[in-house]
Computed example of a mutant assay.
Amino acid sequence: MLVDQEGLDPNFSATASVAGDRAVVTVTGEVDMSTADAMFRAATKDDASAATLDLREVTFFDSAAIHALLQLAEFYGDDRLRVLPSTQVRRVLEISGLSAQPWLMAEG
């Protein structure tokens, strides 16, 4: 499934699939105030009870993206969310004091 991206930044995409009870969302490009909600919706659209957010192809991640990520952690719970960060995402999360979150996986 490709999230409806009408009006969104052309440098952003979020694709989602479900494997068992886990939503797997691959995000590419820039996640900012104009695209963070689309990332959240892609990760919560299906009836999954867990999610993997693959951010390894994300090139920009701002405070709106952090907020959406924290909303996902609240939605799924720390033990049912996995986040695969890009170098840029990891750096932003480190600066924000979020690098020790249980949902943050090692760089891929």
Rank of each mutant, 00 (worst) to 15 (best):
V3G: 07
E6A: 14
G7I: 04
G7Q: 07
D9E: 08
P10R: 13
F12D: 02
S13C: 07
T15N: 11
T15A: 15
A16T: 09
S17A: 13
S17G: 10
V18D: 06
V18P: 00
A19F: 13
G20K: 06
G20S: 07
R22A: 06
A23Y: 05
A23T: 12
V24P: 05
V27S: 08
V27N: 12
E30R: 12
D32L: 05
D32P: 02
S34D: 10
A36T: 11
D37K: 12
A38E: 03
A38N: 02
A42L: 08
A42K: 06
K45C: 12
S49Y: 13
T52N: 08
R56L: 03
V58D: 00
F61P: 00
F61L: 02
D62T: 03
D62R: 06
A64F: 12
A64I: 03
I66F: 03
I66K: 02
L69Q: 01
L69G: 02
L69P: 01
Q71K: 13
L72R: 02
A73I: 01
E74D: 15
D78E: 14
D79N: 13
R80W: 08
R82Y: 01
R82H: 11
V83T: 07
V83R: 10
P85T: 11
S86C: 14
T87A: 15
T87M: 05
Q88E: 14
Q88S: 11
Q88R: 15
R90M: 09
L93N: 09
S96L: 09
G97A: 04
S99D: 13
S99V: 06
S99P: 04
A100R: 15
P102R: 10
P102G: 01
P102F: 05
P102N: 05
W103F: 08
L104W: 03
M105Y: 09
M105I: 06
G108W: 12
G108Y: 06
